[in-house]
Design a protein around this nucleic acid. Structure first.
Length: 483
RNA sequence: GGCCCCAUCGUCUAGUGGUUAGGACGCAUGGUUCUCAACCAUGUAACAGGGGUUCGACUCCCCUUGGGGCCA
């Protein structure tokens, strides 16, 4: 379309710092980012921090840090509504002066009673417009007396129509909206007002946001029209839902990106997962990096219906990305989990860590699972009951025999030859023979003795990582336990 | 309560008037295997209901039902 070349694509994400970066906000950010990238446009970040009471610097930091962590980068400086108060005041005054907005002095109780009344008789709970009739003099007097007031927009009666890029043509009757509030005062604009001003001032071309904003859109359009602003394009994304199919929120469990990060989810997995909550490439491919998405994303392929957040799918993707991660990187990502579990010091042996983690790279779903899996590689003595050493219904005596055989054979292997391949070559035939085909008679006690666990990586690779000395020591300790 | 949005396996989804309704996760079974994963194979399971339109509807229209969102 020719208009596209004239109007550069500029989109934004506008989170309120009233909580940590939420998965829904992150997904909206991602879609905006992808849309901008694909179109060669700009993606902006605007912090909507006008609600001083609920806004918090720490949440602002959380939002910024986690967007970065996800790899969602924004262009230009970060915008803050709190630094733009004079801009809103200017526009508010203009509306007031033109008679397109007015002060309303109705009490909350009064409003609430009216609302209840309208609902009771089956009508839309709209404001009566009462204060819109006040004379200039009356308004001045009331303001002079510092009566509680808000500013309302005098909504013209009309059918508001707009085209949603995802949902098609939408229309609303403004008579059912009524004169809505736009500010608590000159210096405290409300959401619907501030967005309109900001999006205009920032030259936003496309407003891509959650479906929960559909019913705000006609109000915003009315405001745009009052100012003569150019109307941006709209695209309302389906919501992310909890298992009960209501909008995903804290009561459904973990919703912040920071918590997923802490639990050991990789940003690659989260990105891939979030992209597929409401979008797909139209074919059978499922694995997409951020880079792939930047090339392939399109709003036409965005779903209309809400998408339930399905953790088992995230787990699957996370396991996949952990397996694909270069070991060196995985070590860096994992070290923190081992440190906080007290298994390694802040200065750790990266080579050894790589060996240990390599053992479990194929078995992990989340990095946070690591400490419980690999603690045996860092501890000196293991604690377990002797029953653990028994494969199927082996007797104590049989276990002792197996351990003796292991002790004897392994002690003859030189430390240098203590490799997975070598150990396998030597032990497998022995295990075959000793167990009369059931190799578990030798291998299970070995593995249990080395790890103190029912399940783990394979015995040969573990023996290699532990080395000859520790391996023999643990077999000996197991033998002592059996006595 | 008013307005608005939505509706394919349990979940994420492909499908755009004619398909054995496809894939992925999950689950189940088998293979591999000392264990747990991973991997491979197979299986399980869906067009909410009712009317139209049409030679023919998952697909288009209407209604109902259900779910959700906003308005405080």
């Amino acid at each position: 379309m020719s208009t596209k070349t004239q109007n550069p694509v500029r989109v934004r994400i506008a989170p309120s710092p009233t909580g940590p970066l939420h998965i829904g906000t992150a997904r909206t950010a991602l879609f905006n980012y992808l849309f901008a990238k694909k179109a060669g446009g700009s993606f902006l970040l605007r912090i909507e921090d006008t609600d001083l009471e609920r806004s918090d610097k720490k949440f602002e930091k959380d939002i910024i840090n986690n967007l970065k962590w996800l790899g969602i980068k924004w262009d230009e400086k970060t915008y803050y509504q709190s630094k733009r108060l004079s801009i809103y005041a200017k526009y508010l005054e203009r509306l007031l002066k033109d008679g397109k907005a007015y002060y309303c002095f109705c009490s909350e109780e009064e409003l609430e009673a009216k609302r209840q009344y309208f609902m009771g008789i089956g009508k839309a709970p709209i404001y009566s417009g009462k204060c819109g009739e006040l004379s200039e003099k009356e308004v001045k007097e009331k303001l002079g007396r510092k009566e509680n007031s808000i500013i309302r927009f005098r909504a013209p009666e009309k059918i508001v129509k707009f085209k949603d890029l995802i949902r098609g043509a939408l229309e609303f009757d403004s008579a059912l909206i009524g004169d809505f509030s736009i500010a608590k005062g000159l210096s405290s604009p409300l959401y619907n007002f501030a967005v309109v001003i900001d999006d205009f001032e920032m030259g936003i071309s496309h407003v891509i946001r959650g479906e929960d904003h559909i019913s705000n859109t006609p109000k915003q359009i009315l405001l745009q029209e009052a100012f003569g602003f150019h109307q941006p394009e709209y695209a309302h994304l389906p919501l992310i839902l909890g298992p009960d199919r209501s909008k995903l929120s804290k009561r459904h469990g973990v919703t912040s990106i920071a918590d997923y990060k802490k639990a050991g989810y990789l940003s690659d997995a989260l990105i891939n997962f979030m992209a597929f909550l409401g979008w797909n490439p139209g074919d059978q491919r499922e694995i997409f990096s951020l880079n792939d998405l930047e090339k392939e994303f399109s709003l036409e392929k965005v779903q209309k219906a809400g998408a339930v957040f399905n953790i088992s799918r995230l787990d699957y993707l996370n396991g996949y990305y952990i397996r694909k991660k270069p070991l060196k990187e995985l070590v860096k990502l994992s070290a923190g989990y081992l440190k906080s579990a007290g298994l390694v010091k802040s200065k750790y042996d990266a080579k050894y860590l790589a060996k240990v983690i390599g053992l479990y790279q194929g078995r992990l779903k989340k990095l946070s699972e690591l400490p419980d899996l690999v603690d045996f590689a860092f501890k000196d003595g293991l604690e377990y009951g002797k029953e653990l050493l028994k494969w199927k219904n082996m007797t104590d005596q049989e276990v002792i025999v197996s351990l003796d055989i292991l002790q004897e054979i392994l002690s003859k292997i030189s430390p240098k030859k203590f490799t997975k391949e070598n150990l396998e070559e030597i032990l497998l035939p022995v295990a075959q023979e000793q167990g009369s085909g059931d190799r578990g008679k030798l291998l299970w006690p070995l593995r249990a003795a080395l790890t103190g666990k029912e399940s783990s990586a394979g015995p040969f690779e573990i023996a290699e990582v532990l080395g000859k000395i520790r391996t023999l020591k643990r077999i000996k300790e197991a033998g002592e336990l059996m006595k």
